[in-house]
Nucleic acid binder design. Structure first.
Lengths: 194, 194
DNA sequence: CAGGAAATGTCAGGATCTGCCATTAGCTGG
DNA sequence: CCAGCTAATGGCAGATCCTGACATTTCCTG
């Protein structure tokens, strides 16, 4: 048993996603989520600052994954970011069903869309900070990160809404191609090698 | 008397800004705002969907202003957007003090920052829609609008935080210049003509 | 001035979120 | 195996947010 706290967190996240999908976000109360996870409402709010946050709990992990996937040194910068996106795509791929559920909820609820935007901004800031720490010019880092994340969001949106499960990394390629600056992803050698 | 409803709205906005600034956003209750405006809490929520919205009530007007300021036809597109930003700047200039207060509040409160991001997105969508309606390619419109608004935000942030009241339109010029694609604003002939 | 529509007031109530203290689970040293 | 410590949770009260339903007032119009 790794961690009681962590297991509780995950049970709450799972319960929330199920109830949100089944009954709708607004209709699902924090009490109901806690009940399904077998804990008290108070515990729910100890794990998640508010009701929305239960859908965004993975954010920190994914930012860390992006940062870890940045090559040293980050040059050329655009390719470095593209590689990090590949790592992110690889992590997300086996969780497509759940991510699609989550994305549908976010699209349907303004308060969730707000939170998503805020998270996106914090991702961009975190990434840009890491790059500047590694010697990249501040403005360059901010601009390149913005572009990379914008393209990822485009690809991600298509990925979770399309019927056929097209490879996410390929969709990112397509998004880059649409900008006139094609950059192919370089999958990390750890995962699928073909 | 133009409109009872409108006067009530403005009184609520004014009261909210004062109380938020004096006591803090979190500490100010909807009841307190309504009381200071001389209406009931219920009326507050009839005018503004939630407590945050009282700070964003002008948004629709400003989008309309942007749209109206777009030249016909919008060519060259980048200059058209730049001109619209000038019109926006002209509208904001006499209200700098209030806008600075508001900006400080938004910076300090995450829930307000969230709403600001959402509004920014809706602005971009609205502008892009107008442009595509006028024949601009969809992707081009979206990209150019994003860039223009991003530069405006940069300039606006500097405007409301700087001690000296540098001209907003000039700050927009500087932001454009920093991108390597300088575009000067063209003030509408209605206002200051120098 | 009567009538109607729009705006507001009043009230009840559910939901969100927080503070406070009691209780329990899980680990650690003896 | 147990005493004791800490982290996590439970339980509860309460403030605030927000909504629905219905009554009342204000304003415009004929």
């Amino acid at each position: 048993m790794v961690n009681r706290r962590e297991r509780c967190r995950e049970r709450l996240q799972q319960a929330a996603l199920e109830l949100f999908t089944r009954d709708g976000y607004t209709e699902t109360t924090a009490v109901a989520i806690a009940e399904r996870a077998g804990v008290s409402e108070r515990t729910f709010y100890r794990h998640f600052g508010d009701k929305r946050e239960v859908l965004f709990g993975d954010g920190d992990r994914l930012v860390g994954l992006l940062v870890d996937a940045l090559p040293h040194p980050p040059e050329p910068l655009d390719q470095a970011l593209r590689d990090a996106l590949s790592a992110l795509a690889a992590d997300m791929t086996p969780r497509r069903a759940r991510l699609a559920q989550r994305a549908a909820l976010i699209r349907a609820h303004r308060e969730l869309a707000e939170r998503e935007l805020l998270k996106g901004q914090s991702w961009a800031e975190a990434l840009a900070r890491v790059l500047t720490d590694r010697g990249v010019d501040e403005l360059t880092a901010a601009a390149q990160v913005e572009v990379a994340l914008a393209l990822f969001r485009t690809a991600f949106a298509r990925w979770v809404t399309s019927d056929d499960a097209t490879d996410l990394d390929s969709l990112i390629d397509q998004a880059y191609a649409a900008t006139g600056r094609p950059l192919k992803g370089r999958r990390a050698p750890t995962s699928a090698g073909s």
